[in-house]
Design a protein around this nucleic acid. Structure first.
Length: 914
RNA sequence: GGGAGCAUAGCUCAGUUGGUUUAGAGCAUCUGCCUUACAAGCAGAGGGUCCGCGGUUCGAACCCGUGUGCUCCCACCA
């Protein structure tokens, strides 16, 4: 079989994706094995996967594949989120481009467009997930507006309403004037901005009757500082601190709102900070949460001067219909003109922006539906604080989580949109509310606007379904996503006798971004605790944010957000997965650089070439399995003395690598347990590249034109297979491909179970290290003496423990290109000497050696050793150290001392021979 | 304003309850190699006052205090 020069990912990926799918490997049904369930954080249905998703999905796939290969019934549920605001605004924009105004459509017409849009673009993310190699169960695809899911959301709403946890009321909420909907507190993002503080004159009504004219002179006034002069028309009071002597004389007085000359009272409240601004505050209950509270306390009128689209309303009297920020400019100009503007100054402040539309959020009083959070929060808090849900990495987020839940406010769950689950509440013309999963059911559950649920038969008998109108609003997207881990198994819609629900829930681990800890993670825990009295997942793994290599957030404007499919096209899915994982320290932000994908591609190539090497050997094996004696041994393969009794002769390289594998497998288990996936990948990478390719394969490599011993070949193939298995969760395609190319097989790697773990033999590993050190040191010496790789040397070893070197001398000779190895008892003249521990290696070559350079190297080493010896001696000379330190620590120090002394002696002797 | 976290090689990070050498890895850099798997490679090397200061300890990158500089989260001061 002819193998291509380099690994070609494209075809391989398609081939294995199809094969895996045909075999149904990733489809899960409950069985006797323990379940390992992961639910994907559902991406927006019409979105595309960005690098953050790529990281997320890769992490999940690694965990799921590892579990699948470790005896678990792995089930990874894919799906997508209807993302009400995001999708609706996209659809509205699409309609606009077609020349259609949403307002001219009926709800049904609009939803028809929206579903068409969803059908058209909803498949993109699924395609990307598949291309990336994600081993999800495609039979379980769930969308948050699927029929059963829709019903589940409605069911939960009705249930919580009946329990008195959901209520409707007029409150100050965050209003998005662009999307024209209410937002939850979490959907508002604050940014620092430099605003301006305007100092305005409010003339006092000393006489109590006559409104001052605009150009009034000499009249007394009170100065108010405000950032938002366009809201003055909504002012209904001026407030000062009762202890502020400057304003004590204003008790019972009134002032006039500039421009419109409305008369407002001056009130006193300790809320006002006398040291801030002028110590006097204008109170606008309709447009500021604090003012709203003050208004409630002092029974002030509420004048809403803004329309829902952010333009000034009729109530403003002036600039009606003008957009709020344009109105601000005009009002400032008019205030200045009419001598109401004393001064303006720069002022740093924070402004709230809508997470979705980017519009500046307007505090607004509005009637909305709310979920009481205190009751929901406590079990969710205990689940994490009590340790039954573990957050990774560490407990970096524990404090944040705890603080949020302890101070959580009620959740505004209604949205003035059409795309989503419509609130199952109906109203009659008397203001009564009927809540139920269906209209018929709702009729049985009438309640007054603010009242409690009652079974009022008189109402229901008089009313028919025609008299009622359903609430036009839909529910917040997160009010559906918080049921995700349950409802993907129909746990809410059909909880009874639901085998799957009991088998798969709670899920194993949730992998998500730390930015949605409140939106989603905390609320899923709430829903889980409330409806199943069981956590939704045992572990939460937070990935960091993906940034570009300069540390900037990825964004369309900057053009630094690469297209996933382009990257897969260019480097291959395995390389993309490798690249993003290798640069991804758990929980920290990741600086994305295409260079790491190149590294992944290069790694593919390395694997491919190792495969090619083995395929070359495959046809060239010696048949005398286990019979060849050491004198006739295949060059390059060391054949040590037969092990007692067995007749099978272990080979040092094989023995060493077997133990390296054992050692690394146990390290990997620890890393997986701690979700240190990036480190795990690094470990596998290094095991393959360094230990296997650079050392092991070179050690067992037969000489030119020589066959490889059949046993050795067989073992090497097994090692390679085992390495592919370790690599598989990270790089599924190439590992599966190589696994099949190595030998004919019936099974597939993606479902091959890991073998038993074996303990590693430390002494063999130590011997391997010694061998590597000797080889490296000798190569370094060669390099310093400018010996060409082809120039051979004669190696003389001066050691008290020949028996250590004899078994590995074949390997050693080959690795340092020595034509012979001799053991000596004295220094060899005119050679380069290398000292390792207590042993000396003399390199004899035809080339003249550079004594100066050699001397320099030895002196440098000597200096280092002496310095080290002093530090050790200092320690051991310290009585208190000897008295207090643990015996094993002292022994270690003594050994260090002895070693250092021996080495110093070796080096000095070597110097003497020069 | 409240809270959390970070600071180790040019860059990105490891460094397990304080003692396995005078601190490791990958990338980048430098040197030598077209060696019959791989130049997307091989071999080798250089590079660090573990942010500053103080303390605890026989012993500190690690624990404590303090200063400096970053990052994030939360919060209604006009």
């Amino acid at each position: 079989m002819e193998l291509s020069k380099n690994f070609i990912p494209g075809e391989t990926e398609i081939k294995w994706n199809e094969h895996w799918k045909n075999k149904g490997y990733f489809n899960s049904t409950p069985d006797d094995r323990p379940a390992y369930t992961v639910v994907i954080p559902p991406p927006n249905v019409t979105g595309v996967l960005h690098m953050g998703h790529t990281l997320n999905e890769t992490v999940q796939d690694i965990l799921v594949r590892k579990a699948r290969m470790s005896g678990f019934n792995a089930c990874w549920v894919p799906g997508s989120d209807h993302a009400s605001i995001a999708t609706e605004s996209k659809v509205v924009q699409m309609l606009k481009d077609l020349g259609i105004d949403k307002n001219t459509l009926t709800r049904e017409e609009f939803l028809k467009y929206a579903f068409e849009w969803k059908e058209k673009y909803g498949g993109i993310i699924y395609n990307q997930i598949e291309k990336l190699g994600c081993s999800v169960d495609w039979n379980r695809v769930t969308f948050t507006m699927d029929d059963h899911y829709y019903k589940a959301v409605i069911k939960v709403f009705v249930d919580l309403y009946k329990k008195g946890l959901i209520y409707r009321g007029a409150r100050m909420i965050n209003w998005d004037p662009a999307a024209k909907t209410a937002l939850s507190d979490e959907e508002v993002e604050f940014k620092d901005v430099t605003g301006k503080l305007y100092y305005l004159k409010y003339y006092l009504d000393s006489a109590g009757v006559i409104p001052p004219s605009g150009e009034q002179e000499g009249g007394s006034f009170i100065t108010i500082a405000t950032q938002r002069p366009e809201t003055i028309m909504g002012d209904t009071a001026i407030c000062v601190n009762p202890n502020d002597e400057r304003y004590a004389h204003l008790k019972g007085q009134y002032a006039f709102v500039p421009l419109i000359n409305r008369r407002i009272p001056i009130i006193f409240d300790e809320y006002v900070d006398p040291t801030f601004g002028t110590g006097a505050l204008k109170v606008t209950p309709a447009h500021d949460i604090n003012d709203y509270n003050l208004g409630l306390k002092h029974n002030l009128e509420v004048i809403d001067t803004l329309n829902e689209d952010g333009t000034l309303s009729e109530a403003a009297q002036i600039y009606v219909g003008v957009e709020r920020f344009a109105a601000r400019k005009k009002i400032i100009a008019e205030l200045a003109e009419k001598d109401h503007l004393l001064k303006e100054e720069e002022y740093p402040s924070r402004m709230g922006y809508s997470q979705r539309s980017g519009a500046v959020v307007e505090p607004r009083i509005s009637t909305q539906w709310f979920l009481k959070m205190k009751e929901m929060a406590e079990p969710a808090l205990n689940a994490v604080v009590g340790g039954s849900i573990k957050i990774h990495p560490g407990d970096k987020f524990l404090a944040t989580y705890k603080y949020w839940l302890e101070n959580v406010k009620d959740w505004c769950i209604s949205r003035q949109l059409w795309w989503g689950q419509q609130i199952p509440a109906w109203y009659d013309d008397k203001g009564n509310v009927y809540v139920g999963e269906t209209l018929e059911e709702a009729l049985k559950n009438v309640s007054s606007e603010s009242g409690v649920v009652s079974e009022d038969k008189t109402h229901s008998s008089q009313l028919t379904t025609h008299n009622l109108t359903q609430d036009a609003d839909v529910l917040d997207t997160w009010f559906s996503s918080w049921l995700w881990p349950m409802e993907v198994f129909n746990g809410i819609s059909q909880p009874d006798n639901n085998k799957e629900y009991y088998y798969y829930y709670p899920t194993a681990v949730l992998v998500t971004g730390q930015d949605i800890i409140f939106f989603w993670v905390a609320r899923m825990i709430m829903a889980g605790m409330h409806y199943k009295n069981e956590k939704p997942f045992s572990d939460v793994y937070f990935t960091g944010m993906v940034r570009d290599k300069q540390g900037r957030k990825m964004s369309k404007q900057l053009g630094n957000s690469p297209d996933l499919l382009d990257l897969i096209e260019k480097y291959g899915a395995d390389a993309v997965r490798f690249g993003i994982m290798i640069s991804s320290p758990a929980g920290n932000d990741l600086l994305f650089d295409e260079a790491s994908l190149e590294q992944g591609r290069n790694f593919n190539n390395k694997l491919w070439n190792a495969l090619k090497l083995l395929k070359m050997w495959e046809g060239k094996q010696s048949n005398e399995q286990g019979i060849v004696n050491s004198e006739q041994s295949v060059p390059g393969v060391f054949a040590p003395s037969p092990s007692e009794g067995s007749g099978v002769r272990p080979n040092f390289a094989i023995n060493w690598f077997q133990n390296r594998l054992n050692e690394v497998r146990s390290e990997l288990e620890n890393m997986y347990a701690q979700f240190k996936l990036s480190e795990a990948l690094k470990t596998v990478y290094s095991l393959i590249w360094d230990d296997f390719c650079s050392w092991y394969l070179e050690w067992v490599k037969p000489g030119f034109e020589q066959p490889i011993e059949a046993d050795v070949y067989k073992k090497t193939v097994e090692f390679f297979e085992e390495l592919m298995q370790l690599l598989h969760p990270f790089m599924p395609f190439i590992s599966e491909e190589i696994y099949h190319l190595l030998s004919q097989k019936e099974d597939d790697l993606c479902v091959k179970q890991f073998g038993k773990m074996e303990a590693a033999d430390k002494s063999i590993l130590a011997e391997g290290e010694l061998l590597k050190n000797v080889i490296t040191a000798l190569r370094d010496a060669r390099s310093r003496n400018q010996l060409k790789p082809k120039e051979t040397i004669k190696l003389h070893i001066l050691s008290e423990k020949k028996e250590v070197y004899q078994p590995i001398e074949n390997i050693l000779a080959k690795q340092v290109n020595a034509e012979s190895i001799h053991y000596v008892n004295d220094a060899v003249a005119d050679t380069t000497v290398v000292a390792i521990e207590k042993d000396k290696f003399y390199i004899e070559s035809e080339k003249q050696i550079d004594k100066t350079a050699l001397k320099e190297t030895l002196l440098k080493d000597l200096e280092h050793q002496k310095g080290f010896l002093i530090s050790v001696q200092k320690k051991l000379g310290n009585e208190r150290f000897v008295a207090n330190a643990k015996p094993e620590v002292i022994d270690l120090e003594r050994k260090k001392q002895a070693d250092a002394e021996a080495r110093i002696q070796t080096i000095e002797e070597s110097l003497a021979t020069l």
